[in-house]
Simulated scan of single mutants.
Amino acid sequence: MTTVTNSGRPQAAPRRRRSKTVRRLVITLVVLLGLLVAADFGAAAVFEHEVSKRAQAQFDLRDHPSVKVGGFSFLVQAFSGEYDLVTVDAKGVPVRDTLRDVDVHADLRGVRAPLSDLVSGSLTGVPVREVEGQVRVKAADVNRAIQRNENEVVSALTNLTVDPASEKTVATAPAEGAETEQEDEIADQEGSTAGVRLCGTADIAGQSTELCVFSIISLVEGKIVVSPKRLELRNGATSAALPAALQAKVLPLFAITLDPGTLPFKVTPTAVTVEPGLLMVKGKATDLVLGR
């Protein structure tokens, strides 16, 4: 509809109708977007549940592990039948008597599984191009393993902390009367050995004392072997390194071997690493089938 002004020129219809049309279009687009997002989340949930069931059987777990699909849109990946990244996490897994709280993590890349086959149950195995798996041993389990050495000092050890240390720091004692400073950054080099600082508190001669053991961890037949190299004592008054003869007697009390079990999907262990609070075994494998 148009109107005529006093000058006789036609005037455009009010903008109100145009704004209503734009508003309706925006609302329609928002609703469609919401439906697509809901469908994306719903389809992803179905896929994650099916993969979780297969991972539970593969890990021999009591409960379903957590599964998350990476990438921008699940449906886009589902239509192609290949998923860029799928992460699987199982927390608090008991491994024998000593390790009671192991975390298992796996990154699956290039997962090939059409959604229709998963939903219908016709897919018996899920091919995976590459798997990177790891098991994580926490400080509490490390402390428990040390206490099994049955010595009055280590059996009373509490508040154990685990921190990365360079292998150079492990091998180098500080000047007399000084203590080893915490390193800001440690090169992230994965291999069959790594340095670690284990610090805990114990009552020695009636005084609360912090013991810091600098050790090398090694990967030996899939197990984490902790080899202590030197020891520092710290209390409110002083910091000191024990004499060599005394260290030779005390250090073996902190020598332990941790068996975190097999890596997920039977990945071959290739490296050990240290992160704050964690000792980890890592490995990679290619061209596996999940659920076979």
Score class of each variant (00 low, 15 high):
V26T: 13
D188I: 06
A248K: 15
L33G: 14
R9H: 11
A39E: 01
A57N: 07
S116R: 07
Q11A: 13
L278I: 08
E130G: 00
L242Q: 10
G34M: 09
L99G: 10
L85D: 09
V267C: 04
E183S: 12
K53F: 00
T161G: 11
R292T: 09
I186V: 15
R24E: 06
D188F: 08
E183Q: 15
S116E: 07
V196Q: 09
L36A: 15
R148W: 01
S120A: 13
P65Y: 10
N143H: 01
T98F: 02
G71L: 12
R15A: 15
L279R: 05
L123Q: 15
V26M: 13
A248E: 14
K168H: 06
V93I: 15
I204P: 00
S227Y: 01
L253E: 10
L123A: 14
G277W: 10
A139G: 04
L118S: 01
G261V: 06
A12H: 11
V274S: 06
L32M: 13
R144E: 11
G34S: 11
F72R: 11
A171H: 08
E50A: 11
T28F: 07
A90V: 05
D107Q: 13
D97V: 10
P65H: 10
T268I: 10
A55T: 02
K53H: 06
G291Y: 01
R136A: 07
F254V: 05
S239K: 13
G70V: 08
P164N: 08
K223M: 09
Q11C: 04
R54K: 13
E210W: 01
K223V: 06
R16I: 08
T158I: 02
V272S: 02
R54H: 03
I256H: 04
V274I: 13
D107C: 03
T273E: 04
D259L: 04
Q247T: 09
A245N: 11
D40V: 08
P14A: 12
E232N: 08
A175V: 05
R62N: 09
R129L: 10
F265N: 05
G222L: 03
F254W: 09
R109P: 02
E50C: 00
K20V: 13
P269C: 05
A45G: 09
I224T: 06
P65M: 04
P228F: 08
A240G: 08
T193M: 02
V126E: 00
V102G: 03
K68A: 14
E130M: 07
A140E: 14
A175H: 03
R148Q: 15
E275P: 00
A156F: 05
V46K: 00
L251Y: 07
G92V: 08
A202M: 03
K282E: 10
L160E: 01
L246R: 05
V76P: 00
S80T: 14
R54E: 01
R112I: 09
M280A: 15
T270L: 05
F214S: 04
V196L: 10
A194I: 07
V86A: 05
N159Y: 11
A156N: 15
P127K: 06
G71A: 12
A175C: 00
E167Y: 00
D84F: 08
L123Y: 07
A44P: 02
A145V: 07
G236Q: 12
D101V: 11
P114R: 02
I204T: 02
L35D: 03
K284F: 01
Y83Q: 04
